[in-house]
Design a protein around this nucleic acid. Sequence first.
DNA 1: CGCACTATTGAGTATAGTCAACCGGTGTGG
DNA 2: CCACACCGGTTGACTATACTCAATAGTGCG
Lengths: 251, 251
Amino acid sequence: MRMTQPRPTIPIAPASNALVRAACKACSLQELCLPVGLSDDEIDQLDRIISARQSARRGTYLYRIGDPFRNLYAVRSGAFKTVDISEDGSEKITGFYLSGEILGLDAISTERQNFGAIALEDSEVCVVPFPRLEELLREIPALQHHFHKIMSRDIVRDQGLMLLLAGMKADARLSAFLIGLAQRYASRGYSATRFRLRMTREEIGSYLGLTLETVSRLFSRFAEEGLIRVDRRELEIVDQKGLRAIVDQRD
Amino acid sequence: MRMTQPRPTIPIAPASNALVRAACKACSLQELCLPVGLSDDEIDQLDRIISARQSARRGTYLYRIGDPFRNLYAVRSGAFKTVDISEDGSEKITGFYLSGEILGLDAISTERQNFGAIALEDSEVCVVPFPRLEELLREIPALQHHFHKIMSRDIVRDQGLMLLLAGMKADARLSAFLIGLAQRYASRGYSATRFRLRMTREEIGSYLGLTLETVSRLFSRFAEEGLIRVDRRELEIVDQKGLRAIVDQRD
DNA sequence: CGCACTATTGAGTATAGTCAACCGGTGTGG
DNA sequence: CCACACCGGTTGACTATACTCAATAGTGCG
């Protein structure tokens, strides 16, 4: 059950000491973030409105449910979860956010945060004041269209998860989750087959509508079947086709 | 099990014979649709880009999976479902859309339709060419912000459904679904306690991640418990508090 | 009038949840 | 520095919820 070659944590993004003002131009996340296909001049304009970077230590809130909505947050390094807290205090996880992804889009409609955002590890975000972003979108059509695509992508992603939750069995859910994570790491330039889970079994279960015991049993079963190797949070995908087959088997 | 006073179908929106050019200004759905808080002049501008209305007969596609994305569609009258078709031909429902709601937002990111849209009854939509809408959003800040809110609202709605699917038992899912429908009808000026379901038990089940038998049994149980009255597609909510209690009981 | 579709209900079953015991790190305080 | 407690994870035994398969019936459309 132990991995042959346990690995140290893979850093999500190299730390940068560049000035805040040069944020976007110097950022390795350009392709994932807002400034896709912009001219140097346009990126400068965007840089000018990004007021600050902000860091959040592991386990702390970036924002809480009910906070007034003012900014979007682009994850620069680290990872976050968004959580819904019910009256009795139990929390349900609505999403995981990796570097290059945008937090806070849901709050535009309600003008308050609908969920809390908690750092899964020490993290850093770029703060994007939304009213100023809207101004800029009116001036730069390419940025406007890209922003609409980012919001739309969120809708697609959520609907994909709805299909997963509504139609798939536990093993297919977890399998799809792992494949999705692998893709996200790959698109950030990291290994698509070996990575460190940023979240607990309980958090995965909460996100996928399963109990932590079911998640744990499935990890064990997948490992037995030779689909993955897993040691605590270190995960290696051995047989991606096999995982896909589990997702596709619409039973 | 039979309703005391079965009712004829309630029309979703009064038919209008106004010219296409006067669409938004004359439309009863203004509050739900795009033109919130605009001046007469701005509404005129919006009217000018809405190229046409289009009708879809019950059971026919408004668009299909894979169609190139060009337009958004505002439901003017009637109702739609959006469906994901798997290789084996089975369909999963990702959403229901009533009058005043916008179809096609998910396709902005992929530039193709991710799901098919099928009319649940004879329906009519306003066709909104997206590139022209983006132009207009750059000119009218109030419209721009409202459009962002509409996209954001979709994200919130989807995340709410994710929470429902991930965390709730069958009875809580159906209960939440009925309450949500009631609210949507109410916001359109129709009764919040009596309405006609536009969809089959199977379609409700597909949307909620349940089988049609489970949905049917729950309707029967809710009726026995005095929470609702139901006769085929005619539904009356008798005890809304009771329904809410089922949703809130986080078991 | 009859067929197809939608819905209801019952019986048996499988999947995932619950409760519980246990293990191995990690971190803290005596 | 060691002991202990705590957290995250694994595994087992039992159970409940919702699914599957099946029979039946009511509606509506051609």
